[in-house]
Amino acid sequence: MKEASPAKAYALHLGVIALLFGLSFVLPEYHHGLLARIMVLAVFAMGYNMLFGYVGLLSLGHAMFFSAGLYGAGLAVIHLGWSVPAAFAAGLACGTLLALAIGMLALRTSGVAFMIVTMMFAQVFYLIILYFASRTGGDQGLVVPQSARVLVVGGTSLGLTDPTVRYMSALALFSIVLLVTLAIVRSRYGRVLVAIRENEERTKMLGYDTFSNKLAAVVVSGTVCAASGAAYALLFGYVGSTFASVQYSILPLLWVLLGGAATTLGPLIGTLFMYYVVDVTSGYTSAYLLIVGIALILLVLFFPRGILGTIRQRWLGWLP
């Protein structure tokens, strides 16, 4: 990775945020709504990328962090009648605590075992949601009432169901996470993480406590994913166990690999790409999964580092 002036990187990221802001005013209604959803899910992918891209830990259980946020926020509104900010905070807290607990256990393993252990913990989490169906709604899930999804800012109340408010809320969350990710990646801590990915033993010998560094990464990653889940519950009004199933653990992996692992903007690109491939092809044929499958294989054959990863490798070495 060539080193770039910080200004260039920050300018690019602020430019992307500005572009997304501008798009809000020109996009047709449907794509406007879809992009709001994609931004929220891109946050999920960014959280995943934190761990997978930069630390090299492949988890197959991140659906549990997403749904910790989803249920933390959703159930706080439904059962406790909490306000939107309090519920969002509850979702974050659930994700952080869960990530801390899972990290302490799962980080005793590495490689493939880490993958399986995280998958199994996520499976336990999923089954717990089913087991407490009277509270969680089980597989049917629960609706977060529209009347409760209102953000009160200084006297005015903004309905989160309003398309503009929803888009801007999603953009705000996305922007914060993007800039925080960029800051982390460029920080000393970010470099330690990459060093662990490249050679954990050597990093250890250089005197770094790799376990706590990795644990911190799991917690950051889990919290970001929970933020995405909490936002999903509050913005789109549904919590359900599907989001805790293994399929939703594989999706962020896919988005990140497509967009480019260990690139800050890759998760957004990957999510965007995948969403539009499904959306466009499902209009032409009911066998759209076939096309998605073929697209995946072609991508991995010809763009093995993902879209942004390939661009960085071939043309723009300074991309963060």
Partner: peptide, 10 residues
């Protein structure tokens, strides 16, 4: 992994 996910879909 990605390629076999692709195969799974196909």
């Amino acid at each position: 992994i990605v390629a076999t996910i692709g195969m799974l879909y196909i």
